[in-house]
Amino acid sequence: MTKKSLTIGLLFVFLTTVFLGFGLSAAEKDVYKVGVDANFPPWTWVEKGEYKGFDVDVIKAIADVEGLDIEIIDMPWSTIVSALGQGKIDILVSGLSITCERDKIIDYSKPYWSVNQAILVSKDSDMNAITAMSMGHKVGAQSGTTGYMWVEDHLIASGVDVTLKPYEDYIMAVDDMTAGRLDTVLADTTTAKNFVKKGRDVKIIGTVATGEQYAYAVTKGDPYNLLSKINEGMEKIFESGRWMEIFQEYLAEYGYAPPAKIPLTRELTCE
């Protein structure tokens, strides 16, 4: 009895997997899974059980004009890009920068936002933008982000004397810095401005002009033909004025000038 039930149990798990696997390989889906990392205001976050943020509202508006049914799913940043690469989610919207490394495992929509990396230090620090990222100082960034990669590729690779510390999110990095365990945090300009605005004891002493662009992304090969719909949807909601409304709600307070046209033209070319 014991042997049999174990075998049947394993068989059941196996068959369920196979059948569900087949179910998902159809060319169209009833509901598309939109993955967000809900720890990234003002782009994506959860407040009182509700998904909020610029990217959340934009993808909802796009789904609306394109007639797509979407379901928003929260995934930690450390898992989210590979989850999209494996097709566990269909669309990723979470202030995601275009990089050539990610380009290998996911496909991007047209970009909708440009950012640079801001250099954050403690309020009472007397470092400048150069010393903050040299002279043996400890620089922190969220792991897997473009800020982290920039320090790796441009400072450490060329022998600049810094120690790079990875963090699971920016809050922990900033907490560590205000506790004196870290000298500098490198973060997307919008994120950095938010820390200053929320009254944390930090200041921005400069920016690294990485010229990154945010875009939405889908699984490699775009199995459900979503990219054209996302690009077209972005254009439509920009023309209808909905995009500007969402911009006003989430981003205008940072003092950004609204872009003349959405979507933007992609700057980065990868082989």
């Binding site: 976050w45 898992t79 999110d169 809050i171 907490d175």
Partner: peptide, 22 residues
Amino acid sequence: VIGVVEIMRRSRYIISYTYGNA
């Protein structure tokens, strides 16, 4: 880590949008 929104994740949400209080 695999997307189960249990108490740990819920509490993280609050830390994120209040920018602290960890």
